[in-house]
């Protein structure tokens, strides 16, 4: 019931023109990158600079420990939103694995959904 109420609140949010239904979730890391991460981190993971900076993911030494990007994707960091509300642990693992093996990154240890699930904190909920 609480879940239903929250869904309703989200639909009523600012400008939340509302009805948009979540797209069929992809399991493919590359596709998730294209559909979500690329909005800010840009094609090729180059990042960008304006009044502030969107960090580059290409050749990024901070990706060495998989838990770091996984935590940030799930919980957000600074201006970056949390994604645990629209990505499952399996999808977070998948996109982190993709970024850590593309854009000049060559980290071979892959994350799995169980590991991501175990490291997730309490789920963040928008307050409107």
């Amino acid at each position: 019931m609480r879940r239903l109420v929250l869904a309703l609140l989200l639909a009523c949010a600012w400008g939340a023109a509302g009805p948009a239904r979540a797209q069929a979730p992809s399991a493919d890391g590359g596709e998730i990158y294209r559909q979500i991460c690329q909005a800010c981190h840009m094609q090729g993971g180059t990042g960008a600079i304006g009044a502030g900076r969107v960090p580059a993911l290409a050749h990024n030494a901070r990706l060495a420990v998989a838990a770091y990007p996984a935590t940030i994707v799930a919980q957000g960091h600074g201006g970056m939103p949390w994604f645990s509300d629209i990505l499952s642990p399996a999808q977070i693992a998948s996109v982190v694995n993709y970024v850590r093996t593309h854009f000049g990154n060559h980290y071979q240890d892959a994350l799995d959904a169980q590991t991501v699930e175990a490291m997730l904190g309490p789920k963040k909920v928008d307050d409107h």
Partner: peptide, 21 residues
């Protein structure tokens, strides 16, 4: 205009979580 790519905003509007609020 895609607000994630607006150079002076990097997004559209603040998102407060209940816990952060």
């Amino acid at each position: 205009v895609a607000w994630s790519r607006v150079p002076w905003m990097l997004g559209c509007r603040a998102r407060w979580s209940e816990a952060d609020r």
